[in-house]
Design a binder for these strands. Sequence first.
DNA 1: TTGTACGCGTTATCAA
DNA 2: TTGATAACGCGTACAA
Lengths: 337, 337
Amino acid sequence: MDNVNIKKLAKALHLSTSTVSRAFRDNSDISATTKARILAMAKELNYQPNHYASNLREQKSKTIAVIVPELANNYFSLAIQSIERVASAKGYHILVYATNDQFEKEVSFIKHLHNGRADGIIMSVSGEANNHNYLNELSKKRLPIVFFDRVYEDIETPRVITNDYDSSFAATKHLIQQGCKRIAYLAVNKTLSIGKTRMQGYIDALKKFKIPFEDELIIDCTNNYKENIDRLKKAFIDLKPDGVFTSVERLAFATYYACYDINLVIPKDLKVIGFSSLEIAPLLNPALSTVTQPASELGKTAAELLFKMLENPDDVTPTTQLVLNSKLVQRESTSKA
Amino acid sequence: MDNVNIKKLAKALHLSTSTVSRAFRDNSDISATTKARILAMAKELNYQPNHYASNLREQKSKTIAVIVPELANNYFSLAIQSIERVASAKGYHILVYATNDQFEKEVSFIKHLHNGRADGIIMSVSGEANNHNYLNELSKKRLPIVFFDRVYEDIETPRVITNDYDSSFAATKHLIQQGCKRIAYLAVNKTLSIGKTRMQGYIDALKKFKIPFEDELIIDCTNNYKENIDRLKKAFIDLKPDGVFTSVERLAFATYYACYDINLVIPKDLKVIGFSSLEIAPLLNPALSTVTQPASELGKTAAELLFKMLENPDDVTPTTQLVLNSKLVQRESTSKA
DNA sequence: TTGTACGCGTTATCAA
DNA sequence: TTGATAACGCGTACAA
């Protein structure tokens, strides 16, 4: 591996290690000429200050960790890309972890990260249903954490979310205005705060427009692709909804597949709208109406917030909550007639 | 941050640091009871061996770096997800970097990584057009690298790729068999080896079926979304192709948008097939025929290869090349009539 | 401006 | 089985 260290470099230049070290730090006193000499030789020998030694000394890793439920996901990819950009610009590196919605993995990642490997964490949580007090148990030693999108409401740490309640209300209202009377809500996990908030917007919109709420129209889906499609086909046949509001992107896809299978025509027989950041929503058959979340901006904002915490801890109170707005985009899947 | 270290833990237990250290290593001699005592206390105090200190000692980071052209990309997301899975199972962490197709960034990332931060690198390259000899200059000190998908042909290091030539040939043949006579090839960068290979399959298929090759039907696209659509609209109007083969996924999307704009009907006026790993290709309007690359498997294979190199360097020769097969999936966008 | 010496937290070697 | 000690590579007081 890296066999040229500061000692060898110093020896090659007939200098002390401290002088060499100074050449790489901006603030230290060092003559311009020796600095130049050192940097030149460093380049020639391909010297790079050892990251672990530096960070052991400085107790800083210049690394942030990003934990998300899944990586192969349009929404989280966009967010991670923005986070990487912000981090990269600051000279930081990002460690990426996927929990695959397993709470134990989240706990394990987080605990492990408290060994100095990262300076801060940006996370979209996985285990709302569980006891996440483990975060509080780390108490004073807890790394700075920023939640984004999926959050724990009972943990006090800054967060960046979207206006899910309003968006859900607007999406449901949109379906009603397009003539829907029986609107199904496709939930992925009712107990997640994000699921609850989104569902409440749906429920309140129904009430506002005097449409009776029917519990059976709340269809709880799983993480299994095929199973969801089967479940939806059955539900569409049994319950005969005329509108569908999906709380996450992939359930909109599942709805399309289900409709294809049982010959329901969107939007004639069933109007569909869903949360989604998919850029090619206009290319779907039919073009999908969406509640488009600003995924990139969410990532960017979360990263900037974390850096603010790292640079100026007192400037960010633990109750900080930034809310970004999603956008309702009406397309063919909810058009009248 | 982490304020409980091995010394404090040792003091709390009236033991030496070496004994405590031993409790965390599996091979060392230590009595079962003291080990249990230590681990119990460690849990209570939330002690985690400092990662930087350990790795400074051991000269191992248990971390691999993944460098890709872009993160917000269906294909690379799938690959990264698989890599993360393999790494996670081995107790490794992954650092993720996006070059955004800037060669200088790639060079900078790679050089930086040679400071001990990572034990190995998995990369899909960005700078085929440039001089990538920088990799050779690192010579003996170079970290183990596995290329995947996009590779440098002149750098000797193991790689995992797909059978692009065959796939391109098959896709072009498919268009011909569906009746196309003027097939445009949408290139993204002719100089990339991946571009060259894919284009050669197209060219050879034309020749095989005695269709004259026309240089103007090779349409060179950019990384700019809007610009591509404009360029395609013009090309479709001017050149009147009856088939399009796109060398990357996003050009298939651009083709759809362009066709919508100028009222070309796919597949009647223009048949379209493209490289793509998009799961919802069947949901597009019309359903997109694809050359589907095994993105997840590619990532998994690359990761496994890298770990093999780390664990048993002599078992993997630098010329190792694994080829995975893509699959041609025929859908509506290339159907006859 | 440069050099000496210590310590960051850990683990391996050696001795007890 | 346990403890003392040196070393990993670097950065910073402090001294020169």
